[in-house]
Structures are given as structure tokens and as C-alpha cells.
């Protein structure tokens, strides 16, 4: 009786402890893996543009398609007009280019390219001071954009910040975003990354420089 009683109350205590632990583990899994993956939607580019082909084989440099306007403002993603210089009609073999020419060039429809490092509207980023003045290479913020072909990218459903991985070996999921942002995962920079660089170079960190 005694043994049973002790074991019975201990069993009850252990049972409660077990339930508590189980709930703890389940919620940890949900917190660390399930919800984060729900928070990010996996999207793809409208046209699977092949950067290595353009940059490495054909040897186009960044600033042929991404250039400064005369007043120092940044042109950003090229419009159809720039692409049509070469792709007025199909010159390559890949089906993607065929789709591009038929769907977009022929119908004169602008391609809605997805930008991996796109800052929200309330942020003003000056390429002129970073590229021209500070002489920072494109890869610093954009990662090896020209040398690998990311199939798809993750976009946060609430804030639509986007993240991409260039090295196919690295899995792209919510966990890797948090863990190694800036090494193998590239995407929308947040304030702490920008201010760290600004402070290390001693340039002004006035608020209106970035907050539009």
C-alpha cells in the first residue's frame, strides 16, 4: 500500500511533470520551426533570368544594366527597354528566354522582377554615396548575385522583407535566415546591419539619411 501510495503520488507528480515537459517541447518546436516557416512564403522570379550566363560567359558588368542617372539617383532594375537592346528577339536556347521574349518583349509588358534586397518605401538608400563615394563593391550587400542562379526566395508575409540563398547547398528556411544572415543568406538589410557599417566607417548616422 505504502509503496503503491508513494509511487501513486510520485507517479502523479511525474505525470504532471511529463505533461509540462511535453507541452514545452511541442511549443518549442512550433515556436522555432513551424510558425517561422509559416511566416515566410516561398516565391520565384517571374522569369528565371540566368545571371552566371550573362555575367560570366557573356561578360556583362553590373553597371551596363544597373546605372546612375545624371543627377546621381539610381536607376535600379533595368526596364524592358534596356533588355530589348539584345533580346529584341530570341538569341539564346533556353526556354526561359523564349518565354521572356514572347510574353514580355512582344507584348511590351514590363517584367515585375523581385528584388531580394528591396528596402520598404519608408527607407531611402543612396547608391551614389555607397558606390561612388565609399567605393563599396556590389557583392558587399547583394551577395554573389552575378555568379549563381537562385531558383526562389523567401518573403516575409507580414513585412514582405525578402531573403535568398546563392549557394545551392545551403537550405533556405526561416532558421537559416536568423542564424547566418549576411554570410550565406542575403536579403533586406535591417537597421542594425547598416548602422554597424556606418559606425565602423565613421560616416554620419543622421536619421534622415535613411528614414525617408
Amino acid at each position: 500500500m505504502k509503496m503503491r501510495d508513494i509511487s501513486e503520488s510520485q507517479r502523479q507528480f511525474a505525470l504532471l511533470g511529463g505533461i509540462f515537459a511535453a507541452a514545452l517541447v511541442v511549443s518549442l518546436i512550433m515556436g522555432w520551426i513551424l510558425f517561422p516557416s509559416l511566416a515566410y512564403a516561398r516565391k520565384a522570379q517571374p522569369i528565371n533570368y540566368n545571371p552566371p550566363l550573362h555575367v560570366e560567359q557573356i561578360g556583362i558588368t553590373c553597371d551596363t544594366c544597373h546605372f546612375f542617372y545624371e543627377d546621381g539617383s539610381w536607376a535600379g532594375i533595368p526596364t524592358l527597354e534596356t533588355c530589348v537592346d539584345c533580346h529584341s528577339d530570341i538569341i539564346g536556347a533556353s526556354p526561359e528566354e523564349e518565354k521572356f521574349v514572347n510574353e514580355y518583349v512582344k507584348k511590351n509588358r514590363e517584367v515585375k522582377w523581385a528584388l531580394y534586397v528591396k528596402q520598404p518605401e519608408c527607407v531611402s538608400f543612396s547608391h551614389s554615396s555607397h558606390v561612388r563615394m565609399a567605393k563599396i563593391a556590389c557583392e558587399t550587400c547583394h551577395g554573389p548575385q552575378g555568379h549563381s542562379d537562385p531558383k526562389d526566395y523567401l518573403a516575409n508575409r507580414i513585412t514582405n522583407y525578402s531573403y535568398v540563398v546563392y549557394d545551392p547547398r545551403v537550405p533556405l528556411n526561416a532558421f537559416t535566415i536568423i542564424r547566418d544572415k549576411g554570410e550565406t543568406v542575403w536579403g533586406t538589410m535591417r537597421m542594425d546591419e547598416c548602422t554597424a557599417c556606418h559606425r565602423s566607417r565613421g560616416t554620419s548616422t543622421a536619421c534622415f539619411i535613411c528614414h525617408k
Binding site: 500500500m1 505504502k2 501510495d5 508513494i6 503520488s9 510520485q10 507528480f13
Partner: peptide
């Protein structure tokens, strides 16, 4: 709570009451 449990068990063990 833990000490209370063990104390209760000893009390049960020593007096064998019918209604725990």
C-alpha cells in the same frame, strides 16, 4: 509541494487510514 507530498505519503504509510 514536494516536501508536502512526501510528508503526506509518510503520514498515509504510518497510520493506514481508510480514506486517503
Amino acid at each position: 509541494v514536494y516536501r508536502d507530498m512526501t510528508a503526506r505519503n509518510e503520514a498515509n504509510a504510518s497510520e493506514h487510514p481508510e480514506h486517503p
